[in-house]
Computed example of a mutant assay.
Amino acid sequence: MALSPLNQRRWRNFKANRRAWWSLWIFAVLFGISLCAELVANDKPLLVRFDGEWHVPFLRFYPETAFGGDFQTEAAYRDPEVQCLIMTAGSQACWDDPEGFLAEARDKGTVEGQPVNRGFILWAPVPYSFNTINDIGGAAPSAPDAQHWLGTDDTARDVLARVIYGFRLSVTFALVVTLLTSVVGIAAGAVQGYFGGWVDLIFQRVIEIWGATPTLYVIIIVAAIWRMNFWLLVALMVVFGWTSLIGVVRAEFLRARNFEYVRAAKALGVTDRVIIFRHVLPNAMVATLTMLPFLITGTIGTLAMLDFLGFGLPASAPSLGELTQQAKDNLQAPWLAFTAFFTFAIMLSLLVFIFEGVRDAFDPRKTFK
């Protein structure tokens, strides 16, 4: 569907803002990688070819017996014995010396002069998931090395894998919360500002009471009663965050409700719903979009703060706030602090630049060359 001339002008203005345009591309690449985190960082192979058949372990459960083993439990693909079974199509000789057997099969294609039917294992670029406990052969956290590019945390989990999954979690959480709070806040502010009078007065008193509620205390109480999860935390953030846009939208509607074109529309019999959404709301979007960067970055910061304090998502979740808390507790491991800082700095800067470009594109007074 072709864009209207107005939206075409907005799109040209956004593309002309080079900082916003390049920030959008960089963020899209980073977020796209994080959306495919299971293909980028996983402790299960992406593909396994065994005995002429293909398997996708990162999507499906395969017992060890499927590869010639003895157990019905899921195959431990990082175990040299399981790798030996896969690479040699179930040869039982691998149980005696799995590492030596596997090395000889890989190098020569034969074991003791006998050919073997070698299998195939395709690993992700980062062969660890966010919750993989690694055998680092020393104390954790461990410094960056060839196996763990950003080191490990204090429970020997790969930091790079946790950053990839944590980036996706933080951005998804912020976008979902911002979308829901914006819908509720804009609708409430539009009704309050358009109708005014007693509607405006009652809404203002409700907002004053609701805004005085200690959000952090409520979240702490809820976390003590129920096990916190993603959607419960989203619901709490929306319940206490929907008032953030009401003031801006209300002011724009109070100003626009007395404009001549609004009075003319009312005189022609246009319904209030059409006037609100078609005539007044587009003019209020500039002020609304001005607040979006603060809402998104504030939501990411709130999630990190709650995880840092221990009242957010479970400790097993790939949280950037939990990584920051580990950096505080392990000052002898500066790579944790540097990773958390640069992850937040890059993510929040890109989002701010993008939404600044969106705001300016909707502003008819600004035109980029």
Score class of each variant (00 low, 15 high):
Trp95Lys: 10
Thr88Cys: 08
Val126Leu: 06
Trp95Asn: 07
Cys94Ile: 03
Gln83Asn: 08
Ile86Leu: 07
Tyr128Ser: 06
Glu112Ala: 11
Pro127Val: 00
Leu46Ala: 07
Asn134His: 12
Gly113Glu: 12
Lys44Ser: 04
Gln83Ile: 02
Asn117Pro: 03
Phe61Gln: 03
Leu39Lys: 01
Arg49Gly: 05
Asp96Leu: 05
Leu46Arg: 08
Gln72Leu: 11
Ala103Leu: 11
Asp96Ile: 00
Ala66Phe: 02
Ala75Trp: 07
Pro45Phe: 01
Glu64His: 03
Arg78Gly: 11
Phe67Ile: 00
Gln83Trp: 03
Gly138Leu: 12
Glu81Ile: 10
His55Tyr: 15
Ser91Met: 13
Cys94Ser: 07
Gln83Phe: 03
Glu38Ala: 11
Leu35Arg: 15
Asp135Val: 10
His55Pro: 06
Leu39Pro: 02
Lys44Asn: 05
Glu99Phe: 12
Lys44Asp: 00
Pro127His: 02
Ala76Ser: 10
Trp54Ala: 08
Trp123Gly: 02
Val56Asn: 04
Thr88Phe: 12
Asn42Cys: 04
Ile136Lys: 14
Phe71Asp: 15
Trp54Val: 04
Leu35Trp: 14
Pro57Phe: 02
Pro127Gln: 00
Pro98Arg: 05
Phe61Leu: 01
Ile33His: 09
Arg78Ile: 00
Gln92Phe: 09
Arg78Ala: 11
Tyr77Lys: 01
Ala41His: 04
Pro57Ser: 07
Gly119Gln: 03
Gly69Gln: 09
Trp95Arg: 15
Thr73Lys: 12
Lys108Arg: 12
Arg49Gln: 09
Ile136Thr: 13
Lys108Asp: 08
Gly119Asp: 04
Arg118Leu: 13
Gly138Tyr: 14
Phe120Gly: 02
Gly138Phe: 14
Gly100Arg: 01
Tyr62Asp: 02
Gln114Gly: 04
Thr110Ala: 15
Cys84Glu: 03
Val48Ala: 05
Asp70Val: 14
Asp96Gln: 07
Asn134Ser: 15
Leu35Gln: 15
Tyr128Phe: 13
Thr110Glu: 15
Gly137Val: 06
Val116Trp: 13
Val126Arg: 01
Asp96Ala: 10
Ile136Ser: 14
Cys84Thr: 00
Val116Arg: 14
Gly138Asp: 14
Val48Gln: 04
Glu81Ala: 13
Lys108Pro: 00
Pro115His: 13
Gly69Phe: 06
Pro63Lys: 00
His55Asn: 12
Thr110Pro: 07
Val48Arg: 01
Gly90Pro: 08
Gln72Met: 12
Ile86Ala: 01
Pro45Lys: 03
Val48Met: 02
Ser129Ile: 01
Asp51Thr: 10
Trp54Gly: 00
Asp51His: 14
Leu46Glu: 04
Tyr62Thr: 01
Thr73Cys: 00
Asp135Gly: 11
Ala89Arg: 09
Glu112Tyr: 06
Gly138Val: 07
Ile133Glu: 15
Ala103Gln: 13
His55Gln: 07
Phe61Ala: 04
Glu64Phe: 01
Leu46Phe: 05
Gly109Lys: 09
Arg49Pro: 00
Gly52Pro: 08
Leu122Gln: 11
Asn42Phe: 01
Ser91Arg: 15
Gly109Glu: 08
Glu53Leu: 13
Tyr62Leu: 02
Phe50Lys: 08
Tyr62Gly: 05
Ala93Trp: 11
Asp79Gln: 09
Leu122Val: 07
Thr73Phe: 10
Ala93Ile: 02
Gly119Met: 04
Thr65Gly: 15
Phe61Thr: 04
